[in-house]
Design a protein around this nucleic acid. Structure first.
Lengths: 351, 351
DNA sequence: CTGAAAGCGCTTACAG
DNA sequence: CTGAAAGCGCTTACAG
């Protein structure tokens, strides 16, 4: 069953059939109706290979996801898929290993698959510097800012990681915490961790103190297992900590387990803060105080920008940050005698 | 840069170039080497649309995932992707809403995309009965058994849900629990829940008791939020429960939160058992007693069967169950005075 | 072993 | 508004 059959059955030529199928102008109402009738009758579906061969590729969008453990990415994928579907566009998600080269992989896909554009969830600047120039279609990076990478044609939407980390430290500081451990992604491959760490350092300075990186910072991947191990190392090394700030909820959950295993009650003996505001963080015992990244907005801004770029509306790359929110829940204890704890949430982010 | 350029550059015809690219026999060593050299030099990648147009589709495999909340599926996807890659096959994952029709979606994909085969993660028998006959390529269903659905061409690999649920109840029973609540997927669309519930009922009968479905069973979707709500309803209705068995770890985690909110300590005031053996279950406080489904083996058997089927090796559909393991951790309390708790794990599953 | 040619199922100028 | 025809980039009988 191909377009010629439809042409024959409807009494029109393949050209006309193709035109109604693609909603091109210049087809009589009669022809359109007749063709659609036949199409419906026989359940005809055009062959996408042939179609794209002619239309020079540009099939769908590709969502490149770095790692499968990051629950925040799950939320973003879900939203983004919906958004693409609304815009009547196809999107394919490709998972790439946390330490694999997502950009090289995308460059390869670009060659063989000709997607209309790429949406990156997470990304390593080194990889981008390495092979981004081999990608010829619009790209958007999410959760990471690409500002200052010097890459034209790459827009990015992210949380202001530095400000968010500062807000966390400020909150902890207000609650009387001074010795704060930090659990974070590997600085070499995770720029977000770099930014969050910078925020931590800056916040300490703002309070006239100094963050002891060597002693208080323990890098790790974004998984519960890694968070658990890292927390164990950190707690071993610095047993006088009153609080721990993890650069991901998933890490925080691993740390919660580790703290418990070492006999610390959270938050009674040690306070804990996460990052991301992923679903689980609200069901843990205790509920996790965390920075909520706006997955929905991140997805929306990213998809919109990508769509606009592929439609040639605006070629200029933009770098925006999306508001975050410090969710004060149960995992932080105030060390102060009578806490005049401020209201409910700290918001942040410039756009 | 297309095949003609390579032909020109190498001094051979496009036919010869195509033959070496496809590893066809009947090409001289000289020609092969020369062509590959040029290909490498210019970084040529054949256009897959054109290729598949000729080869009549059959591009890659499709993994149809029902729901994005089920962490077990994440594990399976990760393994399956690796396996496909090892076999040098492409696999595309498609997420379909938990209550959308995954089979209709696959049938549509089959028409327009011509995948080599489908790997379903989760599935509703009604949907399969509805439009499975429209799919013309090999299919494998994972985590659900399709035995007795009367569908030729659909193999399945799963955990023996009924036996696993029985093992859970037996374990709880041994620990002295008699009033056990059950939190599970919607029976209408989740056959696994049906099977697990049957196992619960059977186990009660084996112990000479009766499971009060109306009072003790509360259906819900497979998410923490749903688990939380369902547990709230259940605990409200039956406040004399000493244990709760959730048909998914994610549900159990929601229930853990709910129990805590109602002032129950787990396992002191109420015991809790999950299902799946997903990563989080081992980091929660307390660590969740659960049934571990073997995601790795499920993925391996599934991919192997699919590959074999598409290669025409074995057309007969098979239905196998893969061994499960009852992981006894911390969320179950023994109500007996001096417990002679048996060793470490209960295993199960026939194959 | 190699080349010339037909054809996969579409789209899109080009005429009319 | 419609049709006939060229062509997208490949693969694969068919000759040689």
């Amino acid at each position: 069953m191909d377009i010629r059959d439809i042409a024959r059955l409807s009494g029109y030529s393949v050209g006309t059939v193709s035109r109604v199928l693609n909603d091109h102008p210049g087809v009589s109402v009669r022809a359109r109706e007749r063709v659609l009738e036949v199409v419906r009758e026989v359940g005809y579906e055009p062959n996408t290979n042939a179609r794209h061969l002619k239309m020079r590729g540009r099939a769908s969008f590709a969502i490149m996801v770095k790692g499968m453990q990051n629950l925040l990415f799950n939320d973003i994928i879900e939203k983004a898929e919906g958004l693409f579907a609304e815009a009547d566009e196809e999107a394919r998600v490709h998972f790439v290993d946390e330490d694999a080269d997502e950009v090289a992989r995308a460059a390869h896909l670009d060659k063989i698959r000709h997607p209309k554009g790429f949406l990156f969830l997470g990304g390593d600047p080194n990889n981008f510097r390495g092979s981004f120039d081999q990608i010829g279609v619009p790209c958007v990076l999410l959760t990471n800012t690409a500002e200052g990478w010097g890459l034209t044609g790459l827009s990015s939407f992210s949380t202001d990681d530095e400000a968010a980390a500062e807000a966390v430290i400020d909150h902890l500081w207000e609650c009387g915490h001074r010795r704060i451990g930090v659990l974070g992604g590997n600085r070499k491959v995770s720029e977000v961790s770099e930014h969050r760490l910078a925020g931590v350092v800056r916040a300490f300075e703002a309070h006239g103190a100094r963050f002891d990186v060597d002693r208080w910072y323990e890098p790790c991947r974004f998984s519960m297992g890694a968070g658990y191990e890292a927390a164990m190392r950190l707690l071993e090394r610095a047993d006088d900590l009153t609080a721990v700030f993890a650069f991901g909820d998933v890490i925080a959950l691993g740390a919660l387990r580790a703290a418990t295993d070492r006999g610390f009650r959270v938050p009674l003996d040690i306070s804990l803060v996460g990052f991301d505001g992923v679903d689980v963080s609200q069901y843990s015992v205790p509920r996790l105080t965390t920075v909520r990244q706006d997955a929905g907005l991140l997805a929306r801004r990213g998809v919109e920008a990508l769509l606009a770029a592929t439609r040639g509306k605006d070629a200029r790359a933009v770098h925006e940050s999306v508001p975050f929110r410090l969710l004060r829940r149960e995992s932080v204890l105030s060390l102060l005698p009578a806490s005049t704890a401020s209201a409910v949430g700290v918001e942040g982010g410039r756009s």
